[in-house]
Design a protein around this nucleic acid. Sequence first.
DNA 1: GTCTATATAGGGATAGAC
DNA 2: GTCTATCCCTATATAGAC
Lengths: 206, 206
Amino acid sequence: MINNSVLETEAENKIKEAARKIFHRRGFDGARMQEIADEAQINKAMLHYYFRSKDKLFEAVFKEAAMKLFPVVILIIESDLDVDEKIKKLIHNYIDFIIDNPYVPGFVLHELTQNPERMKHFVASNVLMRPQKFFSQIQEGIDSGKYIPIAPLQLMVTIVASCIFPFVAKPMLHTLFGLDQDDFGEFIEQRKEQMTQFILNGLYKK
Amino acid sequence: MINNSVLETEAENKIKEAARKIFHRRGFDGARMQEIADEAQINKAMLHYYFRSKDKLFEAVFKEAAMKLFPVVILIIESDLDVDEKIKKLIHNYIDFIIDNPYVPGFVLHELTQNPERMKHFVASNVLMRPQKFFSQIQEGIDSGKYIPIAPLQLMVTIVASCIFPFVAKPMLHTLFGLDQDDFGEFIEQRKEQMTQFILNGLYKK
DNA sequence: GTCTATATAGGGATAGAC
DNA sequence: GTCTATCCCTATATAGAC
């Protein structure tokens, strides 16, 4: 007789994996429990057996997405690297992460916008952003005349925006500039190095 | 006797204005016809009287949003200004526009992502982006050694991202950095000038 | 644990009186 | 044109047999 706990875990994972796909693709309102069940090749009733409700299932998925999205930035930001290396690593690693998880940024941003209260307490208590070191490094560079004067948070937001935005705006790039799937892949690949150079060049004083 | 056509127009406008608010705030799936009716202080049945269906009403709202969002960029891009002036104008005007229409970018991006086909043909036929002149200007600057080598589209996307992203990520800035409403307003105001300087500095070679 | 059948609610849409 | 009542479908959720 096979241990039931193993099967249980497998079923749960299969459901969560399916839910992840559908929620990421359609958002909370757009997702259907039936579609998740189909994706998991499982009966719809089983969703409610393992996870009581759509809300609970969503919460599990959202948490994982948020926990994946933020730490990429945080770990690098808090490291001992110098500014140039941090920016280079940040852009490369972040874009690579989104290539593997293309729906995560749009999903997190949208759900956070739609229902800020639902997950705010969770994000706040689990994701502690401590950018002090990075911000200090920037400020020192400004004070020493190496960097142009810029609020560290402005720089930070610009870096993250540069990585995330192209993925959120992918349909726009397709419609307005005719970038197909392959073009987009090339565009993103090119972006890693060009953005690193552009942002570092923007930071350093002439 | 009052002319009926006037009242008709007033009712239609009241509905569209209410629909705009709700759709922008909740997206297509999240919006409720009842909520739109309440917002318009009108009976729910009247929505269907004036606009046949939720889809039709949404389409009207989406068109207006998209038609407002893109031309801001396009007009400046296609103008005869030089690169520095274009970038400065682009950032200032675009951010000012979003201050007045804070939900538009997230709305357009999300709906375009959720259902790319629904509006693609419309956007494609109504919004013609002709960035050739701007792109040529950039390329000339690169060839003459004035600018660093960067694909014009990469620059373009970065500029738009810098303007739009902070608004989409507003809840994140609130949660992670504790920016309240006033802080956010200051942040955006500061951003107009600092991003202009940062991006121009990034473009010019040392 | 897994399925079928069904309860229940919500929301888009319409019928019909006025 | 405007309202009430209601149709009807869809989607979440549960009951209950196996």
